[in-house]
Design a protein around this nucleic acid. Structure first.
Lengths: 74, 74
DNA sequence: GTGTAGACTTGTGTCGACC
DNA sequence: TGGTCGACACAAGTCTACA
């Protein structure tokens, strides 16, 4: 599996777990709503700072999320 | 400290620990030599796939590297 | 609440060259 | 071996709008 695909799945999982809408998440990490959707559908690659911003709002440590991405890839 | 700054420091630390030149690292993760330099000097933000490519060559798991970045920021 | 589309600005990542 | 510079292609990220 590709990195962006794994990231999209992990992101969606954590967003749903936190019970947040794409809209709410986007607003609070200062990103665009449509962009969060693009990330979840693996049509964009987030930069490291984008990952950190999203994790802050999701209240998940970035390395935890990255670890899950690694596990999905293998 | 900013994310890119922390990443640059962690990257340089691991590259030196592995005893690799910027050129060698760049060659083996299919990136440009000048770009590795830009990352280490925090003048560029890597995308998630770039992080994974670099980690593969450095033989460090991405989440380990990210964890070190988190610790540097705080 | 989400997916998609187009048009747009900014930044990533490449390349050749010189110090 | 690494820093810097300029020019470049293309992807990230924004915004509006409609389904």
């Amino acid at each position: 599996m590709e990195v962006s695909e794994a990231f999209g799945q992990v992101l969606r999982k954590h967003r749903k777990a936190a019970n947040l809408s794409q809209e709410y998440l986007a607003l609070h990490c200062e990103l665009d709503r449509t962009y969060i959707g693009l990330l979840e559908r693996a049509q964009r690659q987030p930069s490291i700072s984008t990952i950190f911003s999203i994790c802050k709002v999701l209240e998940v440590k970035p390395h935890i999320l990255i670890k899950e991405v690694e596990e999905l890839i293998n």
